[in-house]
Design a protein around this nucleic acid. Structure first.
Lengths: 299, 299
DNA sequence: TAAAAATACTCCATAGGTATTTTAT
DNA sequence: ATAAAATACCTATGGAGTATTTTTA
């Protein structure tokens, strides 16, 4: 990916008429935006925005630049597409960014198959939170991202990968919960282990509970733990339960170490998505996506 | 002026198929060019040039990039034109780069008139050698340049300003040369003061002498001095003569301090030129050029 | 007074330089 | 052997960050 970041900054600011907003979408600080715009104004020797303290608008020079900047960005876009097509090889590096759960539980088997079929692709997997993944894509430090389907800035293309389900899990020997199903009122009595706040998984859970009119204070939260692995290990020695992505416990379900308890009329779903920069059509990326989808469709 | 220097580097290298040549024309070092190209290749993840030790050629990716890069540069060009038209004011900064003689003797009166008529233009005058002036223009540290008409890279537009004449000058009281004319054989006997080697003035002199079949060793060089002012001061206390641009001695001719001695059939002329980046159509630049030309035409 | 942009400062990565080595004809 | 590009190393500038201040609706 080759482009002019300063122009991109300008376009974003012009689109939103806000330095702060642009800063968020480009994952840089607001003073960084200020400096880019100042530099541009200095280069063209005239102001691009009229500043009115807490709002801005484009000057005629700004309008003109916006027009050209868009054209230039489009050219860069096209260029990058064509360059990707050209190097369409099944060899070379592929930098995948994935949020923690996906990187730990979903991708490893897929990557194993892929490496087998495409030994010349050099996979590298970065795991980080969703925001950081989006940032990696925008700054061209990753070729493809996999995260929970959060809102993303418009230059990021989203595509559904799979549905994920968050389920109630207990130790398979748990005698406090012997049914395969419970109703949502019962849920509030069960001692629960959940992830620390800030986790993507916890966010979805809270949203679903809200829909079902359950307040977080209604829950009987026994403990918050920092990782899925910690939670699973805790469950092995406790009669508490946890809300976990179904994908994180396939092993333990097969071994009969853990057991899923259905919560009647409270399904918690989320979509896991591929995200990539528009025009990211490199062959390796396509191969990767296709394999991911196939892996889950054959089941 | 706003553009992408790295792309410009690539275009230059692609045009000449030479890193070294591109380095010269862009006034940067060869390793700098190497680094730019490497960076580009890294960004697009494929080589742009095939290196064969002492020659290079474009890869298909290189051909593709060249195509787009030219389009992008053209857009930047147009953009800059339009921006210049927009800010067409008779106020603001005007950065002039001029070679020493021009900056010291030719521009001051012109700038005085101009400041009078356009008090809102903020003139700044940088004096340096011709090469440095060209470099200032290319790197957008000057808006307009004035130098002796040397060869310049193709992105610099040249336009003749005035003809300059290098003349033989002596102290007005010099009793060793009383004629108004001498022939070129006599020239070789006269003790001469000239500029140090490297000076643009000296270059033209040597070329003219060569044409007249006079070797430098034929001349009776009494001393080399570092500036025109030094030479003039020397002449005031000596019976030596000097070859100086006619423009540097107008004052002393009026005061009858110095005297011009014509050398028969050995006129030494050079052209002084405006140089600017193509598409430098800012109003202030036009005003400046027009005033320069007018100043000399009215005479 | 509250929201947004500007400023002050610190830090690090990058672009540039010079000197030298490697490479392919 | 030579011409050209690559490499090594050093320096300075610019871009990014955080914390804070200024501005105006």
């Amino acid at each position: 990916m080759i482009f002019n970041f300063r122009l991109k900054v300008f376009i974003k600011v012009a689109e939103h008429l806000s330095f702060t907003q642009a800063a968020h979408e480009l994952y840089v600080s607001q003073p960084a935006i200020t400096k880019h715009i100042n530099k541009l104004e200095q280069q063209i020797k005239q102001p691009l925005f009229k500043r009115r303290g807490n709002s801005i608008s484009l000057t005629p020079a700004g309008e003109l630049l916006l027009d050209y900047a868009c054209q230039i960005e489009d050219l860069y876009q096209e260029l990058n597409n064509d360059l990707n097509l050209l190097q369409d090889r099944t060899s070379g590096p592929l930098r995948i960014g994935a949020s923690t759960t996906i990187a730990q539980y979903i991708l490893p088997p897929i990557l194993a198959t892929l490496k087998d079929r495409h030994p010349h692709i050099e996979f590298s997997l970065i795991s980080a939170n969703s925001k950081r993944i989006r940032q990696l894509l925008i700054t061209d430090q990753a070729d493809i991202g996999l995260t929970e389907g959060n809102t993303a800035p418009p230059e990021l293309q989203q595509e559904t990968f799979i549905k994920d389900e968050i389920v109630l899990v207990t130790n398979a020997q748990n005698r406090h919960i012997q049914q395969a199903q419970i109703d949502k009122e019962r849920l509030t009595q069960i001692p629960l282990i959940i992830r620390e706040s800030g986790s993507g998984t916890l966010d979805v859970i809270e949203q679903a509970l809200k829909k079902a009119s359950i307040k977080r204070s209604d829950l009987n939260i026994e403990m918050r733990l920092g990782s899925t692995e910690s939670i699973k290990n805790y469950l092995h020695h406790s009669n508490a339960s946890a809300l976990l992505s179904i994908h994180t416990i396939t092993e333990e379900l097969n071994n009969n170490q853990l057991r899923v308890v259905e919560i009647k009329s409270l399904p918690i779903y989320r979509k896991l998505k591929f995200i990539s920069l528009h025009g990211q059509h490199a062959r390796r990326v396509q191969i990767f996506k296709k394999r991911c989808l196939k892996h889950y469709n054959k089941k």
